[in-house]
Nucleic acid binder design. Structure first.
Lengths: 233, 233
DNA sequence: AGATCCGACCAATTCTAAATTGGTTGAGAG
DNA sequence: CTCTCAACCAATTTAGAATTGGTCGGATCT
């Protein structure tokens, strides 16, 4: 009934559990048997086992989750890399801040590594956006242009990050489509801004590419805010 | 039997299909009924319908995928945001290049937005890494320190990108764990480098924070290469 | 003959229901 | 009082059925 006694009885199970963990060969992911099974193997009550597991969890040796199981090692940080979950916790303004931080650096890297093939595709996308008869077509080629910049870095992880930002953008902007059905006007700001970006990349001007991309995104942001304020547009 | 006749018969189904698409109210994701159902609704053969769908797909109005269905709009770019798929197409060197591009910018942003709470947590993580008795513990707090920098940006998408990079790192490094069981030495390069990063963030020195983070990552990279060359270590 | 229709089948994907898992509660035994 | 045991709960995984676009071969019609 004394605290010492409780600790004592628990400690024996804990040590027994520690011995088991040291000896057992558990699967790649470090998952150990279910509590019901493990209690049978160790010949202890589930209640007892759970106390011992609780102790090990408290000292960070293991981590548990309902429906998943009990695992050895550090609990993995709950990764926010899920687009759907992420899109619910953010907003267009925050997303634009992230884009302003990331995409200029992607453009900078692209200026260093772009191949003639990439440059040709950039030029083609630029031409297609000018020819676009509808906003749908414009956005198709605009998206591809920006993705080509990311591809030009020739860096797979970087391209993955860019895709994630893009997926987020679609998820966040979801619902409020472009209300304006007319096609983009020939003096749309994006045309000259795209031109500046592509030229900088062609000239291997890393700082110029980053600056041009930043300017472009700020321009897009200004446009979004303007459209938001005048609802009808 | 002439080519014109074929085109003529197809065109009628195509126009019928176009009319249906213009009139029908399809779900949020733009998915239209299954071919077997749609053919019944339009009163045409599935073969005929498929020809018409093929035409519309060719001109980019719709896109199809086995098991998924047929959808209106542009085919979504096959996003590389899947960690597992991504980790197979990349390598540690490429990943480190991406980190060198992204993480300094995260540190720069953090220097601008970090709250006293974040600074306190950074200091705590730094202390914990110094106290670490094993590499496992060291890595736990090192990881948390770097994530706190990302949290300090107070930007959800940016934090998501950071988590994605981290998940990638774990996936790519998978298999070759740290072979050295001894604890980190007191003069480990990371200690002073972390100190420089945290100090810069405390001083709201954005350029300093970015530079310190870049230096730190380059140091880690050097370390990795050295360990790789001397396999035994 | 030759195109078309029809049914069946295939592989990729989604949907659904059962099984599993850690966490919790309450009655009863010691 | 404490511990045990069984049942239950919600989160998660798993496995199998159902669905979907794509394909093939024989039957049918022109």
């Amino acid at each position: 009934m004394l605290a010492v006694d409780e600790a004592g009885s628990n400690r024996s199970v804990v040590t027994q559990l520690r011995a088991y963990l040291a000896q057992a060969t558990l699967p790649e992911d470090g998952r150990l048997p279910a509590e019901r099974d493990l209690s049978a193997v160790l010949g202890v009550t589930r209640t007892e086992l759970r106390k011992a597991l609780g102790a090990l969890e408290a000292e960070g040796q293991i981590w548990r989750h309902v429906g998943k199981g009990t695992f050895m090692g550090n609990r993995p940080v709950d990764t926010l890399s899920d687009i759907a979950a992420l899109s619910k916790r953010t907003n267009p303004a925050e997303l634009m801040r992230a884009r302003l931080i990331i995409e200029p650096e992607i453009a900078r890297a692209a200026a260093l590594t772009a191949t003639p093939m990439h440059l040709a595709e950039l030029r083609m996308c630029q031409a297609r956006t000018r020819e676009a008869a509808t906003w749908r077509q414009y956005e198709t080629w605009d998206t591809r242009l920006h993705r080509t910049v990311a591809e030009a870095t020739q860096n797979t992880p970087l391209l993955g990050l860019f895709d994630m930002l893009n997926a987020l953008r679609r998820a966040v902007t979801w619902g409020r489509l472009r209300s304006n059905p007319v096609k983009p006007e020939p003096d749309h700001h994006s045309f000259t801004e795209h031109e500046t970006i592509i030229t900088a990349i062609e000239n291997r001007d890393m700082n110029g590419a980053a600056a041009a991309m930043r300017t472009h995104l700020q321009s897009v942001e200004r446009n979004l805010l303007a459209r938001q304020s005048s609802e009808a547009d």
